[in-house]
């Protein structure tokens, strides 16, 4: 691992001042520390954001606001999440292990990198790791790769379960950019397809930071399911997953949401929303 400096600013303003191009924000570390061990990420400075950003779930004006530093396990056990957006709690519990869920943050879940084996194998070409080198998975070991929205530059998938539920429920991502202005990115626009820049997973502007996620008031708390098909029953990434939610009124389906996971470069690609 390349040596790096370490700092832990106490406020968002100080975080943004500390952010330089060679620096990277550290939240739970469950993905970034691993990437650093494999030399896929080699920041010159780490900025620990764990005390500067919110670790609270709040109900504000009907919206459920999940702070960027809320740990995955805290989402799953939060009473407001369970009553307002139980689909989110179910999706979180379908991912990773209890130890990792105790560490991993909400913001970090969105920003985690693909688990494509070639992305992690630095001896093979990978357009996501090293733009322009080619895609080894395209004709390689790709049974867990994308089946929609891919191109010949990249067939990687986004591995998150949480994000699939957030896509189904029309969440929005609250971001503070490098100029310290707050911007809101709709969840469906946050991640991107590989296009000509598979090295970029999402539309988060350079040096910006996710501060929280909003889930709008929704009628889907009663009827929902998160189904995940994988190689073993627990602690495995999805071959495919689906977040499904129904709004049933008077015995009729008034509204339905379906979002897929584990099949595309962005979670919820092919998300269907329909109103009667």
């Amino acid at each position: 691992m390349k040596p790096f400096s370490f700092s832990k600013p106490g406020s968002l303003a100080k975080l943004m001042q500390a952010r330089k191009d060679a620096a990277q924000f550290l939240a739970g570390g469950t993905n970034l520390v691993d990437l650093m061990k494999k030399n896929i990420a080699a920041p010159g400075a780490l900025i620990d954001i764990s005390t500067a950003l919110s670790d609270k779930v709040e109900l504000t004006g009907g919206k459920l606001r999940i702070g960027a530093m809320v740990r995955n396990s805290a989402i799953a056990t939060n009473a407001q999440v369970i009553s307002k957006a139980p689909l989110v709690a179910k999706a979180v519990l379908a991912g990773a292990s209890p130890q990792i869920r105790n560490m991993a943050s909400t913001g970090g879940n969105l920003l985690q990198r693909t688990r494509c084996p070639y992305f992690y194998d630095v001896s093979t070409p990978c357009n996501k790791r090293q733009p322009g080198t080619g895609c080894s998975a395209l004709h390689g070991e790709n049974r867990m790769s994308a089946i929609v929205g891919y191109n010949d530059q990249c067939v990687a998938v986004h591995p998150s379960d949480l994000c699939v539920a957030l896509a189904a429920l029309d969440a929005t991502v609250n971001v503070t950019n490098a100029q310290q202005k707050q911007i809101v990115i709709p969840f469906k626009d946050f991640h991107k397809l590989p296009d000509n820049s598979p090295d970029r997973d999402n539309q988060l502007p350079a040096n910006a930071i996710i501060t929280s996620i909003d889930i709008p008031d929704n009628p889907f708390a009663q009827h929902h399911a998160y189904v995940k098909i994988r190689d073993r029953d627990s602690y495995a990434f999805a071959l495919i997953s689906v977040a499904a939610a129904l709004h049933i009124q008077g015995g009729r389906i008034a509204d339905v949401r379906l979002a897929s996971g584990g099949v595309a470069h962005k979670p919820g690609a092919g998300t269907k929303q329909s109103s009667s």
Partner: peptide, 28 residues
């Protein structure tokens, strides 16, 4: 040493975590 096996599990403030993915610098 990559967060896949759980052999390094310890408790941090009473909660189970993976010590192989926890940087010592984050511990104060």
């Amino acid at each position: 040493d990559h967060g896949q096996c759980g052999a390094c599990t310890v408790h941090l403030n009473g909660e189970r975590v993976l010590s192989c993915l926890t940087l010592a610098a984050t511990l104060p």
